[in-house]
């Protein structure tokens, strides 16, 4: 854990440093508060790096920096990519159709029992709930993007 804290501490420190440097381009009054926070953030990140660095050296553990195995990374990336494509197509294809298709894809990909019965159930559930949710939010007055379809 200390190795991970050390690495993430550096990432967060870089985040604050970026904003601190960028605040130099702002007018003094607008830069005051962000600078105070960035300085506080940098001090805290530095403290985290030092503390975890010292502990890491003492424990000498072989913990991997990234806490996910290849299968978990694959599933995470797949979900991120699918969601990104879904969002991209929302206003191009239409909200209901794109949401129904992508919800079904996600459900089917992560379906633990790979048989016809479960696949049919998944598709039926997707269609019913998607239409119901769409109708409910439409009744509440929310306008959804329409593309070439609904």
């Amino acid at each position: 854990m200390n190795k991970r804290n050390f690495i993430t501490g550096i990432v967060v420190l870089a985040f604050f440093a970026l904003f601190y440097v960028y605040s130099g381009q702002l007018q003094p009054a607008a830069a005051l508060w962000p600078r105070i926070i960035c300085m506080a953030g940098m001090v805290l990140s530095a403290a985290n790096i030092v503390i975890s660095g010292v502990k890491w050296k003492q424990e000498q553990s072989q913990t991997a920096v990234f806490p996910l195995n290849p299968g978990q990374i694959k599933r995470g990336l797949m979900l991120t990519a699918l969601t990104a494509i879904w969002i991209f197509l929302l206003s191009r294809v239409g909200f209901l159709v794109s949401s129904m298709v992508f919800t079904a894809i996600i459900i089917l990909i992560f379906e633990p029992v790979k048989d016809k019965k479960h696949y049919i159930r998944d598709i039926v559930v997707t269609v019913i709930f998607s239409v119901l949710l769409f109708a409910m939010f439409s009744l509440l007055g929310i306008r959804f993007p329409r593309g070439i379809l609904i």
């Binding site: 969601t83 929302l90 919800t103 996600i106 998944d122 997707t126 709930f129 949710l133 993007p145």
Partner: peptide, 30 residues
């Protein structure tokens, strides 16, 4: 779990989009 989470995702997308009608907000949510 797969159905439950897919619909949480569905609601997350609806919810984020609905606030300002902005697809960029949905990307920000992701």
């Amino acid at each position: 779990k797969n159905i439950l989470n897919a619909f949480v995702l569905f609601l997350s997308v609806i919810g984020t989009y609905a606030i300002r009608g902005s697809v960029s907000d949905v990307f920000l949510m992701l």
